[in-house]
């Protein structure tokens, strides 16, 4: 029933109905923001990237075919844009050598020392997640935060299921270790 009404809304939005598009944004805003937030942390860029997901979808709304669910489609855009943002940050931190010392909110993986000093204890899990390498972070976000199955995660990332499972296992172990280190 819900899927049917979403399909109707998509059809209307593709026909130029602004209100239908707005309803779809409201429907998917929270999960998409959650994905981006988990990937990028609670930063101003995360808000921009979440908005960009819907803008990109609107721009190519007529190319969207209902073969995959809209949520999966939007999540894929969110993951790609988040990875672009992470790459941009990495590039930026390469050039801004001095700036990096003053911006611990974007710590690189294994940068535990900087991270530990600047963080509140209550945000340990989220901060530990932001220290994971992007490959590990993506599978954790999709499987454990978004609740996609291993098969769906593998299909979304276009990697074998075995790779997803092993990355997921290592990511959880790494995350547990990071939390322990940050909690000292």
């Amino acid at each position: 029933m819900v899927m049917q009404s979403e399909r109707d809304l998509i059809g209307k939005a593709q026909g130029g109905d602004q209100r239908a598009f707005e309803q779809l944004v409201l429907l998917h805003e929270a999960p998409i923001r959650k994905t981006v937030w988990a990937m990028l942390g609670d930063t101003p860029e995360a808000k921009d990237v979440a908005q960009e997901v819907f803008i990109r979808w609107y721009q190519s709304i007529n190319d969207f075919e209902s073969r995959s669910s809209l949520r999966t489609y939007l999540t894929r855009i969110a993951i790609n844009l988040s990875l672009n943002e992470l790459k941009r940050r990495k590039q930026k931190s390469k050039w801004l050598v001095f700036g990096r010392e003053n911006t611990p909110e974007y710590p690189e993986p294994n940068d535990h020392e900087v991270a530990f000093k600047s963080w509140e204890a209550g945000e340990l899990l989220h901060k530990a997640l932001s220290l994971l390498a992007p490959d590990f972070r993506i599978v954790l976000v999709l499987r454990l935060i978004e609740g996609y199955s291993v098969q769906e995660t593998a299909a979304m990332l276009q990697i074998p299921e075995g790779t997803v499972a092993s990355r997921l296992a290592r990511a959880q172990i790494k995350l547990k270790e990071l939390i322990a280190k940050l909690d000292k």
């Binding site: 929270a30 923001r33 959650k34 937030w37 988990a38 609670d42 899990l125 989220h126 997640l129 954790l140 454990l144 935060i145 609740g147 959880q172 995350l175 547990k176 939390i179």
Partner: peptide, 11 residues
């Protein structure tokens, strides 16, 4: 940890 991650909600 898994249960906390699943229950996450952004502001």
């Amino acid at each position: 940890m898994r249960s906390e991650l699943l229950g996450w909600k952004p502001e």
